[in-house]
Amino acid sequence: MANKSEVFHFILVGFPGLPEKFYAMAASVIICVYSLSLCANITAIMIILLKAHLHQPMYIIILNLAVSDLIFDTATLPNMIVRYFTGDGTLSFTGCLFQMGMVHSLNLVDSLTIMLMAFDRYVAICKPLRYHSIITKRVAMALCGLVWLVASSIGLFVMSWALPLPFCGPNRILLFYCSLAQVTVLSCTDTSAIRRNGFYAGIIMHVGPFTLNLISYIVIIASICLTSRSENWKKLYNTCIAHWFVITLFYLPRVIDYGIQAQILSSTDVFVLLSCLYAFIPHFSSPIIFCLRTQEIRKTLRKILSEKKL
């Protein structure tokens, strides 16, 4: 691999316009974000794993999301902490490709897992009598496993696009992590077709699940409107509001990012900021939202905290 390229490493720049005097502040912010993500996701994972009454389909799906977010942040943020503390953002060629595969795989894991949540809520609200026969613990685990299999295959496929490319010039990646678009643009050869295909693939991988999410909740709301029962609206609010927050946090910045990329930006501080918003903010906010909005998790967490006080 290395013999085919004059570039043996890449440099993660992060915010290209950030003055060096603010590096320590940037590193501190990243440490806070990473620490919050670790605490929030590990708490959610441990609560769900250790409490038998939470071994239910919906919580298995939440666990899947927390594991994915935890791995994503661990694979990306420590590099940027080192970069802003020491000024060294060097990442080996192999390490960059591996991180690229991880980033694209885990982004797809999140997207598909959020889609599973919408399907779970659809069955729970629209077919409550059949819920436990349709969405069993075994089915939820199988679907989560399928999500990882599909996402990992896509990640490897994305890596295969960048693997044979020659790199012999600039090696500065204006982002917090290696991505297909940011790496291929540095190649010595024409990669416009790869970048265009990657752009369209990214849209498809996110628009597809988002569309199914939207359809699920339209059907749920339509079903409740037909019944005209106020308790069903309360059930909708109590069971779905957390998912709506997560969907908004995950998809809205991506929609803005893809729209702006297509029209205005290539690699700027605004682009990096948008990438950070959709890559990292949902990772620590999602488990917090679920812990606060999901009644069973909230009760379990309150019980654990009260026991600790005793």
Rank of each mutant, 00 (worst) to 15 (best):
V7D: 05
F8V: 12
I11R: 15
I11G: 03
I11K: 14
P19Q: 07
F22Y: 15
Y23S: 15
M25I: 14
A27C: 06
A27P: 02
S28Q: 07
V29R: 06
V29W: 09
I31V: 15
I31F: 06
S37P: 02
N41I: 07
N41H: 04
I42Y: 08
T43A: 01
A44L: 15
I45V: 13
I45K: 04
M46Q: 09
M46R: 13
I47V: 14
I48Y: 07
L49K: 15
K51I: 10
L54E: 06
I60S: 09
L63N: 04
L63A: 03
L63I: 05
N64P: 02
V67N: 01
L70C: 09
T74G: 02
V82H: 14
R83M: 11
Y84W: 08
Y84C: 07
D88F: 02
S92P: 04
T94F: 10
T94G: 10
C96M: 03
V103Q: 08
V103D: 05
L108F: 10
I114C: 08
I114G: 00
M115H: 08
L116C: 10
M117D: 06
A118I: 06
F119Y: 14
D120Y: 15
V123F: 02
C126I: 12
K127Y: 12
K127S: 09
Y131E: 09
S133N: 14
I134S: 05
I135L: 12
I135H: 00
T136S: 12
A140Y: 01
M141H: 02
L143I: 03
L143C: 14
C144E: 04
V147T: 12
W148S: 05
V150D: 04
V150H: 06
A151G: 00
S152N: 08
S152D: 07
I154W: 14
L156K: 02
M159C: 15
W161R: 11
A162F: 02
P164H: 08
F167Q: 00
C168P: 03
P170N: 15
L180D: 02
A181E: 15
T184I: 00
L186C: 08
S187P: 03
D190M: 08
S192I: 06
I194Q: 08
R195A: 01
Y200S: 04
Y200R: 06
Y200P: 02
Y200H: 10
G202L: 00
M205E: 11
G208R: 03
F210Q: 04
F210W: 09
L212F: 15
L214A: 13
I218D: 03
A222S: 13
T227L: 12
S228Q: 12
S230P: 02
N238I: 06
N238A: 11
N238D: 13
F245G: 10
V246L: 04
P253E: 07
V255Q: 01
G259M: 02
Q263S: 14
I264L: 13
S266H: 12
S267A: 14
T268R: 05
V270S: 10
S275Y: 10
L277P: 05
F280G: 00
I281P: 03
I281C: 10
P282L: 05
P282C: 07
F284C: 03
F284H: 04
P287E: 00
C291M: 15
L292P: 03
L292Y: 12
L292K: 10
I297H: 00
K299L: 12
K299A: 09
L301C: 12
R302Q: 12
L310Y: 11
L310H: 11
